[in-house]
Design a binder for these strands. Structure first.
Lengths: 123, 123
DNA sequence: GTAGCATGCTACTATTTTCGTAGCATTTGA
DNA sequence: TCAAATGCTACGAAAATAGTAGCATGCTAC
């Protein structure tokens, strides 16, 4: 799949406006998860990332990483994959979703993450 | 495609943790765009939404809307589709992406939305 | 120096999603 | 009662993703 690019035609959008290009990018499977897990301490290596993303197939992981590198959201160092400064900023918008999703689960589906009852009340 | 549900097995994740369920939901094509455009004044009707989303096929749009209604993110009124309170809250996390994507386009791809030069400097 | 192991990734087929188009049933307004 | 708009379903074609196998490279230990 081609990397979405603002100004160029994006999947399903003639205009290729920045927000649509971004939605195209983020709306691909595993992209959000990669951003999420890359922001944590440990992962970074291909295999580790793959594991955290629930065993995503390496071909897809590789595609996503390539797209994210093209977009200057992910970079590489000797230690493996990392978020760029821009990528960290993007991730910061995603972080609050964790809390939202916890409430959502609880209120809509009655699901509670084991041992999370108190923590949710507090924060 | 089945609606992802926290606590149940989600695409690619055994745990079905809330954040993974959410990523599964948002990582489907058009979901982010639907949230985005539903938050604006005008759309609401099926056809209007379809148009704004670049002519997405009605079968997909219908699937996405069903998923989002299952998730209590989208609701229906006599006027058509609307965001629920929960959905509005979710959308609020997505709104800042517009500004981020404008800079991203400019800095990474040299793309500028016509007539946006000044506005970007200001905000 | 070679045997084992981890890592990053490519290849390939199978399955699932999405696209694109056609069109039907219902409502609205003239 | 006719035309137009709306919400949606059906269905074959195309594209994306999954799943598995395995290869090349770089360690590390013996």
């Amino acid at each position: 799949m081609s990397t979405p690019r603002p100004g160029a035609k994006v999947r399903g959008s003639e205009s290729g406006s920045p927000i649509n290009a971004l939605f195209d990018l983020l709306g691909r499977r595993w992209t959000l998860g990669i951003l999420w897990y890359l922001g944590e301490e440990a992962p970074r290596t291909f295999r580790n990332l793959q594991e955290r993303c629930g065993g995503v197939s390496p071909s897809i992981l590789n595609s996503r990483l390539k797209e994210l590198r093209d977009a200057d959201i992910v970079g590489r160092t000797v230690d493996g994959y990392v978020l760029t400064e821009r990528g960290k900023e993007l991730r910061s918008f995603i972080v609050p979703l964790a809390k939202w999703s916890a409430r959502w689960s609880q209120e809509v589906y009655g699901y509670e993450r084991p041992g999370m009852r108190q923590r949710l009340d507090q924060e």
